[in-house]
Design a protein around this nucleic acid. Structure first.
Lengths: 211, 211
DNA sequence: GTTGAAATTAGTACGAA
DNA sequence: TTCGTACTAATTTCAAC
């Protein structure tokens, strides 16, 4: 394998990008299915498992990467083995119009594995991985509390992670059970891309996603 | 590459396994760092980037896989491109001593990407990816509400995902800033493995992790 | 979109330091 | 343990169909 992937981090990239570059058909989805289970499979073996020729597999593989449908390839690491046995969720209430600052401060915190903007009682949810409970405490009281943009926090520990799938795909639903519409779609589009996708900062929360 | 990775899903595997099989040194962490950014890099290129010989890289690579420090390799997929533009969090209150049923029902739901048992007000947090908001509604009212083990739910939409890191590593903290203890550790252990790791079903919540 | 053959690269198995 | 090298097997590329 020639070191294909440059793999620059997508953090802070354009999240609300809805534009479609590639129409995903059943074969594309099949490729994604295999790749999410085994990101290191060779394209040759991938072609065999999907049931297409190698040249075709190479073409589609590259297209999926170029299009961004495949963001990157990564290793799932056992965080307890890596010395980060504690996982916690921190729900943050953010002062309006200080989102930019909040985001900037977040970027400086390497223990943050995930951060999402949510509806509901709080504004954001942060997932962190640290070595011990003391680190959670110092993270919340010393670092987060010192950010002016942070109005309030609520911390919860994760006791167990029951399901952690690489990425859900539409095909997971199975062929026999349509997502919602039993049999509408006249000229059936391969995949309802970006349907109602309001992902991207919204509701006066602009300034977080971009820039 | 001989299709190395069997990559069987770890879902429902033993989560609370604390036993250490491998002591991770700085080189191991360096390998993990590279691999989490580029899971498809060849071992030869990996060796070069880490600064060790190819033979050594192969040995350590295999050791990390065998030990479980590397769970699997996966492709990060852009869910909006895959037709699943809606992400939601569902907080679930579970009836005590019905965890087994709850877990069994969860396993039947392919739209669940992540499920964690938490402390605090609710008992579990589920993250789902679906095509439209209607699917969230039907998921909550038709499927979750029909599980006897589910006492109550609270749903929140994810408007934007600001940070999504592959996996946090201890080395992310940087060399200059120790995690918590400035300079204690007499015979410094390479990594405080499993320290205070209460990951694994606890607090009368047994039966979820291991069945 | 597919197949086959050539060139490159990856993976393995040594011995030596 | 780690390294360096040689050997074998697989993968990728490129061509023609």
């Amino acid at each position: 394998m020639t070191e294909t992937s440059s793999n620059q981090s997508t953090e802070g990239g354009p999240p609300g990008r809805i534009g479609i570059g590639l129409e995903l058909d059943a074969t594309h989805l099949k490729i994604l299915e295999v790749l999410r289970e085994n990101g290191r499979i060779s394209v040759a073996a991938l072609a065999e498992r999907v049931g297409i020729s190698r040249a075709n597999a190479y073409t589609r593989f590259e297209a999926l990467r170029a299009d961004g449908a495949i963001r990157r390839f990564t290793a799932e690491i056992d965080h307890t083995r890596a010395g980060l046995g504690i996982t916690a969720l921190i729900f943050v209430t953010v002062r309006q119009q200080m989102w930019r600052q909040f985001r900037a401060e977040l970027a400086k915190m390497p223990e943050v594995e995930y951060c999402a903007i949510t509806t509901g009682q709080h504004d954001a949810m942060i997932q962190i991985r640290v070595a011990d409970v003391a680190a959670v405490h110092s993270m919340v009281t010393e670092r987060l509390a010192n950010i002016p943009a942070v109005k309030a926090t609520e911390t919860v520990f994760i006791l167990d992670e029951v399901i952690r799938r690489p990425y859900v795909l539409p095909s997971d639903r199975g062929p026999g059970r349509p997502p919602r519409r039993p049999a509408p779609a006249p000229a059936q589009d391969p995949v309802p891309l970006g349907k109602l996708g309001f992902v991207g900062a919204a509701e006066g929360r602009a300034g977080l996603g971009k820039e």
